[in-house]
């Protein structure tokens, strides 16, 4: 399953490390990263793929949300198919 992970919030040390770590622990491989800082705000969109394909999305969403709340970041993860079907005819 291909995933899109978005992270938005105030920049600080270790955001990428933290998100990547959670993905790695869940057997998710990062395919590409698009990241920038706008006005001190950290923006990152990752394309990733679940290896073995057995990831439970709601659980991963909960986990990332909890971790995000801790560090005042908004971290969201969705199945890529949702974006494809919504924005491509």
């Amino acid at each position: 399953m291909k995933l899109v992970v978005t992270t938005v919030g105030k920049d600080r040390v270790g955001i990428i490390a933290m998100v990547s770590n959670i993905l790695a622990e869940n057997n998710i491989n990062i395919l590409s990263v698009n990241q920038n800082i706008m006005d001190g705000f950290f923006n990152m969109i990752m394309m990733a793929e679940s290896v073995g394909g057995d990831v439970k999305l709601p659980e991963l969403q909960k986990l990332l949300r909890a971790k995000g709340d801790e560090l005042e970041l908004e971290i969201k993860v969705q199945n890529q198919e949702i974006f494809n079907i919504m924005h491509n005819i």
Binding site: T6, K76, Q78, Q80, F83, H87, N88
Partner: peptide, 16 residues
Amino acid sequence: MITIDNILETNRMITE
């Protein structure tokens, strides 16, 4: 091709 705007829009639809 999905743009960053598309991604943010879809995320907002679902979560907010």
